[in-house]
């Protein structure tokens, strides 16, 4: 069943929230894609059922189980971003998207494994295998295309980043991954500001951007590297037991806590900002980005392959993109997220 079908069944009292939640909790516990299970899920299911029984209108997705990529904070559940350096980290507040999910009556089943500080192929796999009806993730276009599921990377800024562990601050966007375009749209409407996602859309030609990928890599790694600096083993992050002094504490904690891919990104990011490289590379990347964003103002929709070269366009310009089960994406103008979902479903 899709998420909307589950919601309809609950509303029609064909199935209880508790039953659905139990089903998905069992699947999550048995799945290697989940890194944490919400032990309060049954209690929350009972609360939602009580509200529905009392005649409260919560949302079109009330009672439906959902999972979150493990870079989104749920207070009281550990959050590790797939990294050893965040082992044992306990968020002190709920992410804003989590607050919205709870107000809408969705049940958080658990947290999904991910590549260290990056995307979550596990989320796409879990949704594809119906281990969970749908999930919230950050840019998962490649994984979604590989697993034949739907995914929207929303317009940048449409969804609050409060309570999301920052990776690339100017590109991070929390979006849905689901088995239908309608499920994606419905979930997006719960977590996003309506005016940010509701403009209409239509197909156009796309200009070429030869330097976009390089600009995207430079900006991504520089921002991600800077955002990773806070994991220093001093005020935050797992501290190395082998360090003999302050500098070693920094260097060993971080070297032991990060995988190779993360180290590579952090080093490349530092390099792009160091000394003359700011003028030579980083500043130019920001100028390329400005040019690109301006050029894309006239574009309302374009169908593109899902790969680095094409993914970077929506990332740099903050545009929405929907990945379809056929492995292609449609990128739209800013604020046309829902129209993309509807067009994609057609």
């Amino acid at each position: 069943m899709t998420a909307l079908q589950i919601a309809a069944a609950i509303a029609a009292k064909e199935v209880s929230v508790a039953d659905i939640t139990t089903q998905y909790i069992e699947k999550a516990r048995a799945s290697a894609n989940f890194v944490a299970i919400n032990e309060q899920a049954m209690e929350q299911a009972a609360q939602v059922q009580a509200k529905l029984d009392a005649g409260e209108t919560l949302s079109p997705l009330a009672g439906v189980p959902v999972a979150l990529q493990d870079n989104i904070f749920v207070q009281g559940m550990p959050c590790a971003c797939g990294s050893a350096i965040m082992a044992d980290y306990m968020p002190m507040f709920d992410a804003e998207v989590v607050q919205k999910l709870q107000a809408a009556g969705l049940i958080v089943i658990g947290k999904l494994a991910m590549n260290e500080f990056a995307d979550s192929p596990q989320a796409a796999a879990a949704v594809a295998a119906d281990e969970i009806p749908f999930a919230l993730v950050t840019d998962n276009r490649k994984a979604a295309a590989q697993h034949g599921v739907w995914h929207i990377k929303p317009t940048y800024g449409a969804v609050s980043r409060l309570g999301l562990v920052a990776n690339v601050s100017s590109m991070d966007a929390i979006g849905p991954v689901a088995r239908s375009a309608e499920d994606c749209a419905a979930l997006l409407q719960i977590i996003a500001d309506a005016q940010w996602i509701d403009l209409p859309s239509g197909l156009t030609e796309l200009p070429a951007f030869p330097h976009a990928l390089t600009a995207c890599e430079i900006i991504s790694c520089a921002e991600a590297g800077a955002n990773l600096q806070k994991f220093d083993g001093i005020s935050l992050g797992k501290r190395s037991a082998d360090a003999q002094n302050l500098t070693e504490t920094y260097k060993f904690s971080r070297a032991q806590g990060f995988g190779m891919a993360t180290k590579r990104r952090a080093l490349f990011g530092s390099l792009m900002l160091a000394g003359d490289n700011y003028e030579l590379y980083y500043k130019k990347a920001l100028q390329v980005r400005a040019q690109m964003k301006a050029a894309l103002e006239g574009v309302s929709m374009a169908e593109l392959p899902v790969d680095d070269v094409h993914n970077c366009l929506a990332s740099l310009a903050g545009l929405p993109a929907i990945v379809k089960p056929d492995g292609k994406q449609i990128m739209g103008a800013a604020f046309t997220d829902i129209a993309l979902a509807k067009g994609g479903a057609a």
Binding site: Y89, F93, R161, G163, K230, L236
Partner: peptide, 11 residues
């Protein structure tokens, strides 16, 4: 608060 403590997830 988490913001001035330099915690992740803050703005």
């Amino acid at each position: 608060c988490p913001g001035c403590a330099g915690e992740p997830g803050t703005l």
